Simulated assay, not measured.
Amino acid sequence: LAFQVKGPGIGLLGFSLGADICLSMASYLKNISATVSINGSGFSGNKPIQYKQTCIPPLNHDFRRLKVAFSGLLDIVDIRNDVIGRHENPSMIPIEKAQGPILFIVGQDDHNWRSELYAQIASERLQAHGKEKPQILSYPGTGHNIEPPYFPLCPASVHKLLNKPIMWGGEPRAHARAQEDSWKQILTFFCKHLGGTQNIASPKL
């Protein structure tokens, strides 16, 4: 794999909470030319997001909505408080302030939170503020942990917040295909918006 970009713009790539950090950076910092959000939420989750004098309140969660799967793993997809007001919710990151385009990558079988719904709400917000409709890549049978190609599926692990094993979702074949396709899409997106050149060699294992 050979991948080059040239300034002065910066590209950001984040996953889950890291994606929300990237969206926050793109919203408040200069020279962010392109951002990729992999299964991010676009909301301030468990803690407020603070930048200078700005404070975005958290959505918070309700553990009474925890579910236990047949496997015994916890399913936390519903524990976040309802997204009242959708794109006008005060807990949403002001992504309309981002200078560059945003690519949303979501797994339809994400059991951490409702990534596909959040990407749709983000699209609503951008368009409500006169921005172009963003690109959303939505993958069926794909869970929360969308990693680079050939990383094995992680269907469950211990969640730091709960200190208990939870399910992340994903069907092995579909998830693997999504990781391979999304990686190509990410490279294409960054090359287009950061002015680089792309040369993808055939992978060798």
Rank of each mutant, 00 (worst) to 15 (best):
E116F: 15
L103P: 00
I136A: 08
Q135W: 09
C191R: 10
N163I: 05
L117I: 12
P172E: 12
G40A: 05
T54D: 14
P134Y: 01
I105W: 02
A34D: 09
F3I: 14
L23T: 01
H61T: 08
A201T: 11
A201F: 05
K30I: 08
Y139M: 02
H193W: 15
L12W: 11
C154P: 08
L1I: 06
G195F: 13
A174M: 06
H175T: 05
A174R: 06
G11R: 02
V158E: 13
Q135G: 09
P94M: 00
P172W: 01
S123T: 13
K6Q: 14
G170L: 05
V5L: 06
A98Y: 02
L66M: 14
R64Y: 09
W183I: 07
I56E: 00
T54R: 10
I84E: 11
I93H: 00
E116R: 12
N89I: 03
I121P: 00
Q179T: 13
D82M: 12
K133P: 10
H175V: 10
P165C: 09
S41K: 04
F43E: 00
V68S: 13
P148S: 08
I84K: 13
I32Q: 05
C22H: 07
Q120D: 14
E171H: 08
I121G: 00
H87D: 05
A178R: 04
L59E: 01
G7T: 08
V68L: 12
I105R: 02
S33H: 09
R173K: 15
D62H: 07
G9P: 04
F63Y: 10
D109L: 02
I102A: 03
T35N: 12
L17E: 10
L29K: 13
I121A: 03
I166T: 10
L194V: 05
S24Y: 09
K97D: 13
Y139K: 03
S115A: 15
E124S: 09
P203R: 04
G100N: 15
S91P: 02
V5Q: 13
H144K: 12
R177H: 14
A201C: 10
R86M: 07
K6V: 14
R114Y: 07
T54A: 13
S138I: 11
Y28C: 08
G9N: 12
G72Y: 10
N39P: 03
D62V: 04
P172F: 01
I38T: 05
D109A: 14
L73P: 02
L153I: 09
I56D: 00
G11F: 02
P57A: 12
M92A: 03
F151V: 04
C191K: 06
R86W: 03
S157C: 12
G169I: 06
Y51T: 04
L74V: 11
P140S: 06
K164C: 10
R65M: 11
V106Q: 06
K67V: 07
S123V: 02
L126E: 01
I84D: 14
D20I: 03
W113I: 01
W183F: 15
G143Q: 04
P90K: 03
C154Y: 10
